[in-house]
Every structure is written in C-alpha cells, then in structure tokens.
Design a protein around this nucleic acid. Structure first.
Length: 434
RNA sequence: GGACCUGUGGUGCAGCUCGGAGUGCACGCCGGCCUGUCAAGCCGGAGGUCGCGGGUUCAAAUCCCGUCAGGUCCGCCA
C-alpha cells in the first residue's frame, strides 16, 4: 500500500514505498543515473533513477524543467552517500502534474522583478519562513488580547468622512457620492469603548494615500490595533504592548528561531521587561548631546534622531526597544490626552525598535468638553467630527490604545531591508499589481 | 513634493572617466561527454534595437539635452 507523505516524514519511513508531491528543485541528469531533487514545504529529498531500469521513465526525467510539479512514488532508502539527509527515493513511478516554463526570475533577481512574479518568488524557503513567522505573530497577538479580556472587532474600511487628516485618504466612488478608505480604525476602536466593551482589538488593512518612497512605507498594510478601557495612563498601554511583544517574539523564537536566524542572519532576542522609557524632551536632549542637530523645526525627532537614540540606548541598556513618551501636543493628534499640569505635553508614546518607529499610542481624551476644545485648538471643525464626538457625550470610560505596523515589525524582526519583502503583495505609490 | 542614484542577452554584473566592430564574467537555457551526482564537472552553442527620443561627432553603451521606468534618503507616518 502506497501512502502520501510530506518530505520531512520520510526519515521515519526507510524501506517503505511512499508517494510524495512537490516541485522539481534541481536536475542532475547523467549518462547512467538520474538525480532529481524534489522540494515541498517541509524540505527536500533526492530522487534517484538508474536509466537502464526504465528507459521510458528516463525520457520523462530527461524532459523535466525546474519548478515543475510532480508526483513521485518510490522506496525510501537510507544511503550514506547522499549528502541531503542520507536519504533518497528509488523511483517506481514519476508523473509530471504541471510542467513549468523557464522561470523569469531567480533568487538573484532584483526586488522589483521578483515582485512582478511574486507567486514564484514566494516559493523560496526564505519567503515561506516570513509568512510562518507572521502567522505566529498574528496568532499570539490575538491570543494575548483575548487572554486580557479584549473583544475582536472588524471595523469598516469604507468611510463617509476622514478619520483624521483628509490629505492621506484614498477616495472611492460610492454610488452617487464619495467614500474614503480608512487610514486607521482609530475612531471605531474608541467607539467600542463607548459601547461598553472592556477593550477591543483588530487586525486589518489600513490605507495611506501618501506618496512615500521609502523602504518602510506602503499604501496598504496590516495594522494591529488595540484599545483598552479603564487605563489610568499611557503607562498601562505600554505595559500591555511590551508583554504582547515579548510573548510573540518568544513564540516565534521557540518554533522557528534557529531556522530564521540561519536564513536571515539576524539573532532573535526575546526582550526583557520592562522596555526602557524615555520622555520625548529627554530624548531630544540626549540626541543633541551626542552631537546630532535635528534639522526639522517642529521640535520632533526625525528618523535619523530615532536611529541615533535607539543606538545609544542599545549601548547603555542593552535593550532593542525603547518607548519614547510624553510627546508635545503640537506634534500629536487632538485626541491624545494632555497632562493636567502641563497641557503642552501628551500622555502618548512611540515604540522604536532598532531605530524604527513601529507603534504610536496614547491615553485618549474621553472628556467631551476638553476633547472639543482640543479639536478647536488644532484648527479642526467640530461639526465634521460630530459622529465621533458623540461617543463621549453619553458616558465613556477612560481608555487608551495603540497601533502596530505588522510589516515594520516583521522587517525588524528578520532584519530585512524593506517592507516589500515581508508583505504578501506589496502596494505602494508605483505598484498596484499583481 | 524635494535631493541623489540606477537602467547592457532569460537572471545578476563589468564595460562608461579617457568615444573606435555588441566586448567580457557568473548563473540559467539548448546540444554533446561523464557508472552516484549532491553549489556536480568538462566541451560546444543559441540568445542583445546597450530603457526610449533627440543632439554633438568621421564614429556613441560611453559625451550633452529631454523623456520613461525603478531605487535610496528626506517630508508624511505604523
């Protein structure tokens, strides 16, 4: 009886006849013996055929092309000569299920060409690993939120009015009027708090219409969003997030660590708690003292300052993460809560991992009158925000939350140079296909 | 939106300063050789309007201008 197996199972099936399914990885067609390396998502195995044994089969194997999909039945033999795991499959039958043309890309091809042929690019072990890591990450995010009593929501991505700033919104035709693609679930998350949920979370797409040409931006990406009721400050939110990240990184390291590290060359470090925290004003001072004059005039950190700050703290604390807290209200949105005794400072934070901003969070302003005055303070029109401001008119608990960019997280975790590498199908100003 | 960089067989590069026949390298592909390969090896071969348009010149992949496509950084942000 022949049964179907994954390649990783063959080591336990020596001397048995099995059928495997996979992709042709390498063909070494010699005068008397033919070797074909078959790959599936669990590994690779060598298939061997003595040409004399079956001339018809020899002909089939002679016509093979790389990445064709095949069904191979044979006997598993332990043979020390085989460098690939000391195992091989002696062919009994060999069927081509789907023949492949010559591939338009290989692992040397540049990223843009590989993205044109993403379905082929994703076949590599390296790329499969990225999405295995992503699966664990999203799963741990869900489980952590659930363990902490939060409710999962799926907020709409079609909106009648902009959630924050109109400039970065995509417009879509919506019957006889205009709708916008959500650039954040921010307002709908907060609605959940006003609805009496103990906290909400969501993983979903967000859309940003910015023409940003960098290695860390995309126009559509997955955001991991959290909003928690009854927080007493942004400290509670940071504490939630650092525990979440430690848990997720721990889970990834324990199931994929060695393979990820050998494939990507980036050591995966499970972070210690708590993450270092540094108030914004102190961060600015520290970067200046270290000799960097921030060119921008609004008093915020620029990317270079964030990289330098991160590097500095990695040296002094040995920690890859840093929360920068207490941003000036001038560089934060109207809904971030301000300190009672220092109204130009917000109860907010960014999380920087190895120099890259991966999160923005804050305690939110839940007091209607104060919120409304902050709307006016930012020069916004309260009427256009009526539906949002109403959340705070009928009883709303104190709350806070954050948004975490999935692709940025993966990019830093694996040490790859570009979010495009870790996005299933990247969308940017110059790319809408495939 | 701003600054800078890149575009050469299917893939990755070199050639460009200092103009002289589409020249070279690696991978892949096709054919041949090879009694067990395993980054296979050896021999031979095919494959190119040098992104596109214009200019300078006896002569342009090479110099100049324009244009298109892509990238990096800044701004915006996760």
């Amino acid at each position: 009886m022949t049964r179907k197996f994954r390649i990783q199972d063959l080591v336990n099936l020596v001397d048995q006849s099995v059928t495997i399914y996979g992709w042709v990885d390498t063909i070494r067609d010699q005068k008397s013996v033919q070797f074909v390396i078959i790959r599936d998502e669990t590994g690779k195995v060598q298939v061997v055929h003595d040409r004399q044994e079956n001339p018809d089969l020899a002909e089939v194997i002679g016509q093979l092309s790389t990445d064709s999909v095949v069904e191979v039945t044979g006997k598993v033999i332990a043979d020390e000569r085989v460098k690939l795991g000391g195992l091989e499959l002696r062919v009994e039958s060999f069927k081509i299920l789907s023949k492949a043309d010559d591939l338009p890309i290989n692992e040397q091809s540049n990223l843009d060409k590989r993205l044109d042929w993403r379905f082929i690019d994703l076949r590599s072990r390296r790329n499969q690993l990225i999405f295995q890591a992503q699966t664990i990450l999203e799963n741990e995010f869900r489980r952590h939120c659930q363990d902490e009593g939060l409710i999962e929501i799926n907020s709409p991505k079609l909106m009648a009015s902009p959630s924050e700033s109109r400039s970065e919104l995509f417009q879509v035709k919506y019957f006889d009027r205009t709708a916008y693609l959500a650039q954040s679930p921010q307002f709908y998350k907060q609605m959940g708090i006003a609805s009496g949920f103990p906290g909400v979370f969501e993983t979903g797409p967000v859309f940003r219409a910015n023409p940003s040409f960098t290695s860390r931006h995309d126009t559509e990406f997955t955001s991991l969003d959290v909003e928690i009721a009854w927080v007493s400050s942004h400290e509670d939110v940071m504490s939630f997030e650092e525990r979440l990240l430690r848990r997720a990184i721990e889970a990834i390291k324990s199931s994929l660590g060695p393979e990820l590290e050998s494939e990507f060359g980036t050591p995966i470090t499970v972070p210690q708690l708590p993450f270092p925290r540094i108030p914004h004003a102190e961060a600015i001072r520290l970067v200046k003292e270290a000799g960097y004059e921030i060119p921008r005039s609004d008093g915020d950190l620029d990317p270079e300052a964030e990289r330098r700050l991160s590097e500095n703290l990695m040296k002094t604390t040995g920690h890859e993460f840093v929360f920068v807290t207490d941003y000036p209200s001038s560089v934060r949105p109207f809904y971030h809560m301000r300190y009672e005794d220092a109204p130009t400072v917000t109860k907010s934070f960014d999380l920087i991992w190895k120099g890259l901003e991966i999160t923005t969070g804050a305690q939110r302003e839940h007091r209607y009158e104060i919120l409304k005055s902050q709307v006016l303070d930012k020069g916004l029109d309260p009427q256009s925000l009526d539906f949002y401001l109403d959340f705070f008119r009928f009883g709303c608990p104190p709350h806070g939350g954050f948004g975490l960019g999935l692709t940025r997280l993966l990019m830093i975790l694996l040490g790859v140079a570009n979010v495009r590498e870790v996005t299933y199908l990247y969308r940017g100003p110059n790319r809408l296909v495939p």
